[in-house]
Amino acid sequence: MISLNSVIKTFDTVAAVDNITLHVEKGEHFALLGPNGAGKTTVVRMLLGFIKPTAGSILIDTIPASNPVARKGVGYLAEHHMIPSYLSGLDYLRRHASLIGFSGKDARAEVERLLEVVSMEGREKEKSAAYSKGMKQRIGLAAALLGKPKLLILDEPTAGLDPIGIRDVRNVLENLRADNVTVFLNSHLLSEVEKTCRTVAIMNNGKILIKDSLQSIIEKGETLEDVFIKYISDGRRMTDGGGPMEDGRPLR
């Protein structure tokens, strides 16, 4: 579904993404973890074609990510989701629906369905300027889910959400598993990642340190947080000559 091959992205002389190769299979719920400045958001921006890689290739369903056609069937939620202040949540969702080809009754039905999913029914006609950060995030999630996407790219989806909102997002992601939707999750909330994703990659300084299933990388008695800290703080596998790993094999 997603394929990053030897991708490098430099800003001036700084390598934000440093020669990473990563594959996410169809239906996989994948989380990209890493500290601030690791390069996670740069990867997401490249996936959406907002920026182009300096070297390497990025494919979504065999189509280059820079081609807008690749974004057919892709839903995206940004970390700090913004909605133009002059639009209501309803206007915003209708606009998204229209851009992906919904019209008339179909658009109305789809928008109403998703307003219910994100618990925003009754508030949808208010201007977004009156929305809290969490409400904007909910509307953003609804926009990402419009048209039943095949791939969902979520950049810190729970940012600004209260515990109930976080639970709702988790439920939404759980339901997507049944529909075989691929999820690319970028998150700091390790406890949430543990609950929602089966595969994770840990990234630091633009490099993937490890990519594997949660089961494989969490040893007995450990939590994902322990594993995360272990990789980030001492970069064990990188410095021990083992190099970055994917599915138990070294990453190239």
Partner: peptide
């Protein structure tokens, strides 16, 4: 982001 996260050239 609204426009360019969709299949809009």
């Amino acid at each position: 982001v609204l426009f360019l996260s969709r299949p809009v050239f």
